[in-house]
Design a protein around this nucleic acid. Structure first.
Length: 871
RNA sequence: GGUCGCUUAGCUCAGCUGGUUAGAGCGCUGCGUUCACAUCGCAGAGGUCGGUGGUUCGAGUCCACUAGCGACCACCA
């Protein structure tokens, strides 16, 4: 059948309808795969993108990687599930909507009220979610859309409530007054890792509290000194040892303070005066000291960043105003000793960049150091660390295991309540002093639900099992349904920057909920940087929209460019040139197929991949051996998560061996239809996980079934070491033939000699000789021989019904040059090898196999050199 | 301050547990190409693997020190 294919592959025309075809087939859903019950599972849960913005090129890399793993396993008989979803990203989303609202109407969320504001947020969520899903599909992602989840949908809300209640009942979740990171702008607490630090200039004030206080202290925030209850010095500091344990009552700018002198090793002697005022309510470190020493805590600043009641003239002022006033007083009363500028790390909100106010506040916490009954008294922290140490989680690259462990062991109690509107409601109700924790509002009047929401990571931490039907699929301590079939998942693939933020939390949450580590392997990809090696960001404007790239080069080209040249855990640069290069490759693959399909018969094209065609000539044996070798390498590399190398091997075969040599041979040597069909099918199957669209499109040219579920055969090609070694001979002949078609400008090492068998067709032979001459085939010598076997080192072409065998023939000049160069190389190697083998220590200590190998190599080289010299 | 990573061809990067003559893509140079593909082909130039020292029969690979760049975590009042 003659196939009509376009000269150039056009992804824009194919991709959407192919995706449709896949979706309609139902094969994204593992329930629709034809599998026996004992088929192994392969599950990846997609890290849910934030619905705050559309996808960027980093997401594309993630999708390409995961789809590669998923498709590879689906084509290898696994019950393969890739489950999609999006993340509500509580604070981030609320902020985006707030900003937009303010920009367009000048209103704040408080102007609208909770209900109206939340409806605006949901409007936004629905819009961006649609964008994200369509972008995800554009990448060719074979996600099971029937299981689509959202971290804040009804099912996930149910799961979150259940989790909260369980953890509360087990004493893991508690409510407590602790110092928290407070953003006065967002009006919310932030977890430790939502705080960012920016270096900036700050003023360090050195002063005495009062005239009768014996020494000076230093601070950048004089206004918080209103809440000081102690002064800390290093216990080793001789200057202050005599004061340790003493108490002073001072009048600090009009406020009475009681100060105890305490010793703490964290105080650095050479910073400032070596003494610091302890403000337990407004500094993390100070709070810790106060806990250790049993100090009183005095709150100075409120949730709006203003000075609280009972601070006289300061009350009601903002922190900055109060600071100015205190500084002025210190100056005029002569207590100020020094004001100097120094560089300081200011903590700020990662969303709105406002300075963080550490505050004492009543919040909900997950106690990571509390003994958990269901863990036989182990704490969450200990349990998670034990899982890592017991090698139940493997990290790739493994160095990230160390980060995980050290982060885990330094983890402090996790504050999970947030004072924002958009997010999971806390399933707690209050009535006066009464507290009720449960699924829904309790009986009776006057109950008020906690107005806070949960940290977004609380629900993302549950992602692997909440998406698989927990808690409904967890009955009496046993998994059922999807949870049983697909949990734990095989791979978690995500960026390393999110390792602590997300991965560690998933481990803790999953251990608590179902006593299972949520994934066997954590594959961490690097960050995609711009072409100059800088992080892509909205503010820098150096981001790349994957859709723009896809529209020009196609999704396959983008995928392949992201999959190659990158290694796990390492950042890589994005460049359009690379995508273009991959587009060229895809077009090459298209044209390889076009060439092969152009004269393939119906029955040949339908032959089965499992039955290998019989090679007839040298070239056939060679290409089948190369295919065998390549396919094995590809499998090995893919199983090893070595995706880039797998693609490299495969393109080397496809382009440099199949296209450049074997297809050239096929132009002159006929009768290769069966092998060509087999080769084409093989590379389509092998390439499919990398570049699904183009392979599926080509496949559809000669098959009715879908490539997406085509099972990989046990073996591709056939093993034949001899044939692989004869590669250079084929090259020589082909260069000769190919150049013969032009004015012969690139010369092969050998010229080509034609051999015609005199098989009682002498009349034909004469015309045949004419034809060859007219063809200008670069054939330098023609010989007519009696009929015998086809020479082993030949390629057969058929002209005018008579077979002509092409052999490499020697061109004196060229051959001399080549031999000379080759001899030099050989001599160099021989001297190197014999030197090495003469070394007794090498022979004694190197592995025997290596020594033997080198010896045989040396012998072979000497033999070759001898032959060469004889000529 | 702590932890970790990177430094290999003009550019972007591979190089697995130390073992043939260190690789690829792009770029560059020369030659070629109506007959699958100019989104093409062939050939070639180009590297003392950041530096110093060590371990070893053998080091791009392991160790120590050192220089430059980068990331993450913590954080000083």
């Amino acid at each position: 059948m003659k196939k009509e294919m376009e000269k150039v592959y056009n992804p824009q025309e194919c991709e959407d309808h192919i995706y449709q075809k896949w979706e309609n087939s139902g094969y994204f859903n593992p329930d629709n795969l034809a599998l026996s019950d004992d088929a192994p599972n392969y599950t990846i849960i997609l890290p849910p993108p934030n619905i705050t913005a559309k996808l960027h090129i980093g997401h594309s890399a993630m999708l390409a990687l995961e789809d590669l793993m998923i498709r590879y396993h689906r084509m290898n008989g696994y019950r393969t599930l890739w489950l999609p979803g999006t993340d509500h990203a509580a604070i981030a989303t609320q902020n985006v909507v707030e900003k937009e609202l303010f920009k367009s109407t000048g209103k704040t969320r408080h102007d609208l009220g909770k209900e109206v504001f939340l409806s605006k947020v949901w409007e936004f969520v629905n819009k961006t979610q649609a964008t994200i899903l369509s972008q995800t599909k554009k990448m060719g992602s074979s996600l099971d859309w029937s299981r689509l989840a959202f971290t804040l949908d009804e099912e996930r809300q149910q799961a979150v409530r259940k989790m909260f209640i369980d953890m509360y009942q087990d004493g893991v979740i508690y409510r407590g007054e602790r110092i928290v990171n407070w953003c006065p702008r967002c009006h919310s607490t932030l977890s430790d890792d939502e705080v960012e630090y920016h270096e900036q200039e700050a003023k360090l004030y050195t002063f005495k509290y009062s005239v009768d206080f014996p020494f000076a202290i230093s601070t950048t925030r004089p206004e918080t000194k209103l809440g000081d209850t102690a002064v800390a010095v290093n216990p080793k500091d001789e200057r202050y040892q005599k004061y340790l344990g003493k108490e002073f009552s001072v009048d600090f700018c009009g406020q009475k303070l009681k100060l105890k002198i305490i010793g703490d090793r964290k105080v650095e002697m050479d910073f400032g005066t070596g003494a610091l005022g302890v403000t337990p309510a407004h500094s993390m470190v100070d709070w810790q000291m106060a806990q250790d020493q049993g100090l009183e805590t005095v709150k100075v600043i409120d949730e709006n960043g203003k000075i609280k009641e009972n601070f006289g003239e300061y009350s009601g002022l903002s922190a900055l105003e109060a600071r100015a006033k205190i500084v002025e007083k210190l100056q005029t009363s002569g207590l100020m000793i020094e004001e100097k500028i120094f560089s300081n790390n200011l903590s700020s909100c990662y969303r709105c960049d406002s300075p963080i106010e550490p505050l004492l506040s009543k919040q909900w916490f997950i106690g990571v150091d509390r003994p958990v009954a269901r863990f036989d008294g182990q704490t969450l922290k200990e349990k998670a660390i034990a899982a890592y140490k017991g090698k139940d989680i493997e990290f790739l690259p493994d160095r990230f295991g160390k980060s995980f462990e050290s982060w885990m062991s330094n983890l402090r109690d996790w504050c999970i309540s947030r004072q924002i509107w958009f997010g999971h409601e806390i399933p707690v109700w209050y009535r006066g002093e009464e507290i009720f924790v449960g699924e829904s509002v309790p009986q009776g009047d006057g109950w008020l639900q906690d107005g806070d929401t949960l940290d977004t990571w609380f629900s993302s931490g549950m992602w692997t099992f909440s998406t698989l039907g927990w808690p409904n699929n967890f009955q009496e301590g046993k998994k059922i349904g999807d949870l049983k079939r697909f949990h734990p998942t095989q791979v978690l693939e995500t960026g390393y920057e999110i390792l602590t933020l997300w991965v560690s939390r998933m481990v803790m949450m999953s251990l608590f909920a179902i006593n299972e580590i949520p994934f066997e392997k954590v594959y961490l990809h690097g960050t995609i940087l711009d072409s100059k090696g800088k992080k892509m960001s909205k503010s820098k404007g150096n981001g790349v929209d994957p859709i723009d790239v896809i529209n020009i080069y196609g999704a396959d080209a983008l995928r392949l460019s992201l999959l190659t040249g990158s290694t796990p855990g390492n950042d890589s640069r994005y460049s359009e040139e690379k995508v273009a290069a991959k587009r060229n490759f895809i077009n090459k693959l298209w044209n390889i197929s076009r060439f092969i399909l152009s004269d393939l018969s119906e029955e040949t094209s339908s032959c089965d991949l499992d039955s290998l065609p019989e090679p007839k000539t040298l070239a056939d044996r060679w290409i089948m051996a190369e295919l065998h070798q390549t396919a094995n390498l590809v499998r090995e590399k893919l199983d090893d998560f070595n995706f880039s190398l797998a693609a490299e091997e495969l393109s080397n075969f496809t382009w440099n061996k199949l296209a450049d040599w074997y297809l050239e041979i096929a132009k002159v040597e006929k009768g290769k239809e069966e092998i060509l069909a087999h080769l084409l099918k093989s590379i389509l199957v092998l390439w499919h996980p990398f570049i699904p669209y183009v392979t599926e499109e080509i496949w559809s040219q000669f098959n009715n079934d879908l490539l997406i579920v085509k099972q990989w055969p046990g073996t591709f090609g056939r093993k034949d070491d001899e044939a692989v070694r004869d590669y250079s001979l084929i090259q020589d002949i082909i260069i000769g033939v190919r150049n013969g078609r032009s004015e012969n400008r690139v010369e092969p090492a050998r010229k080509v000699k034609a051999l015609i068998f005199n098989n009682n067709h002498s009349s034909l032979i004469n015309s045949q000789l004419e034809i060859i001459k007219n063809l200008k085939t670069g054939i330098s010598e023609i010989e007519v021989a009696e009929k015998t076997e086809q020479p082993k080192e030949s390629i057969a072409i058929i002209v005018g019904g008579v077979e002509i065998y092409l052999l490499g023939a020697v061109d004196q000049e060229k051959e001399k040059m080549r031999l000379h160069k080759e001899r030099e190389n050989l001599e160099k190697m021989i001297s190197l090898l014999s030197g090495r083998l003469a070394n007794e220590e090498f022979v004694a200590k190197a592995p025997a196999a290596l020594v033997e190998k080198e010896q045989t190599r040396l012998l072979a080289m000497r033999e070759e050199l001898k032959k060469m010299l004889n000529h």
